[in-house]
Design a protein around this nucleic acid. Structure first.
Lengths: 239, 239
DNA sequence: AGCTTATTTTGGTCTATACCAGTAATCCCA
DNA sequence: TGGGATTACTGGTATAGACCAAAATAAGCT
């Protein structure tokens, strides 16, 4: 009830937001359909959608392909400096994590990867694609590349758990340094499909390079997150 | 020319993206108007807009209020562990930074700030609001709170430069630890207005708490960034 | 009960039109 | 020439209708 409630879609937005805040609509619950939301006030579906897009950008609601709109659960906290692995830190926050391995194959080192891994072009690398979920909602997909000469036979193992712990326990490889790049992005084609969201939805791209104590690149990882699924928290000492 | 070019708006998206990639449209340049983009193919304005929203989410184009659509410049790189201040690191990347102080006042410590600063409720604090630009495009607005007892008279100084260096050179206060929280968000009402973007545009919220060597909170800072203006890069040693 | 097949519902895309509020360009006068 | 008022143009909001593909549900058949 502020000033610019001349805008219909903001009025609708506020109505829905209030129903979420008040607890009438709970996390994970389904919203009434767009056509049902039109009922009382003579408002076009396009306007309803505008309001829903707004709420989606704010992280209050999300949509599943053609199924409907749902109230978003709270985000998980991600601290790149305390990398205990997805499974453990999601669990520590009282949520239920899950991992699916979409594919695992051997690839050969190309020019870009050669740069990253300091390995000759043509050298064998493992390429793993996984989808990770929280409480049954897919929140990120990742592409991992691992130097095959450091972890021979890696893809024979079950990778639906923590990759870090497999590298540690089976191959004795520990991560000593982490380089993390993050940037807001749009989830397009492949990523959007794997996350079952509409192409063009904003997301967060996280690129991580893991080094061992000798400075060798152990793992190169590119993750695409739903924008509403995480909160990044970094605690660092300034040099 | 892949598979799902049945979608008109993706076709339009690709056309425009190609014109940007090919250099026909350069960074900072203005796109033809939505109505001009309709001309050849019998395509509705709504479809053109859908394509533009897609490109906006991808960070390829941005819009200025009712002026038009423009090609986005490349993002700046932001490393929270090497905090030299906005002015210097933007300049180091060959861009032209600018700061405007929107307001600076004395406020009293409320419950939330009391928690953060470990100061009694009612204690004086400085509240500074600034807008920062890169190459004349506003990219972030920030709200800074500083403990007035640590830096008496701070707001008498010119704050259009680096606050960190004022704290250091005038008050001898150095930052020893930085706690940074980041999360994708929507730019709403106040922030959107200050950044001159449409409310609801995705952005990145950065919350920083700076501690001195004694562990006292020196500065509490909340920034709202345009989603397409930055790339975060962290390089850390794992404990 | 379980399984398959229709049917309905849902969001996703698209067209066409209209009016409004800021911006940018133009015009015109001093 | 300079500056202020006017006009044209831009994106922003809104309506109403239509069709489609995927998802969810209901119906029907073992």
């Amino acid at each position: 009830m502020q000033q610019p409630d001349h805008l219909h879609y903001l009025g609708v937005r506020n109505d829905i937001a209030d129903r979420i805040d008040s607890g009438e609509l709970k996390a994970g619950e389904r919203l009434p359909s767009e056509r049902q939301l039109q009922v009382g006030g003579g408002v076009a579906r396009g306007t309803i959608r505008e309001a829903l897009f707004q709420l989606e950008a704010e992280g209050l609601v999300y949509r599943r392909n053609r199924s409907g709109w749902y109230v978003s659960p709270p985000p998980v906290v991600y601290d790149p400096t305390r990398w205990e692995g997805f499974m453990s830190y999601v669990e520590a926050q009282g949520r239920r994590p899950a991992t699916e391995t979409l594919s695992k194959t051997v690839i050969t080192c190309d020019a870009m990867l050669s740069q990253i891994f300091s390995r000759p072009i043509g050298a064998p690398l493992y390429w793993i694609r996984r989808r990770r979920s929280i409480d049954d909602r897919a929140v990120l997909i990742e592409s991992i590349v691992v130097d095959a000469s450091l972890a021979p036979g890696l893809i024979e193992h079950d990778l639906d758990g923590s990759l870090t712990s497999v590298l540690k326990s089976v191959y004795g490889i520990g991560v000593a340094r982490n380089k993390v790049d993050m940037r807001p992005c749009a989830l397009t084609r492949g990523e959007a499909e794997a996350l079952r969201v509409k192409s063009g939805l904003p997301g967060l791209s996280v690129e991580r390079t893991c080094y061992d104590a000798q400075g060798r690149v152990v793992e190169f990882d590119r993750e695409y997150w739903r924008h509403d699924a995480l909160k990044i928290s970094v605690d660092i000492r300034v040099r």
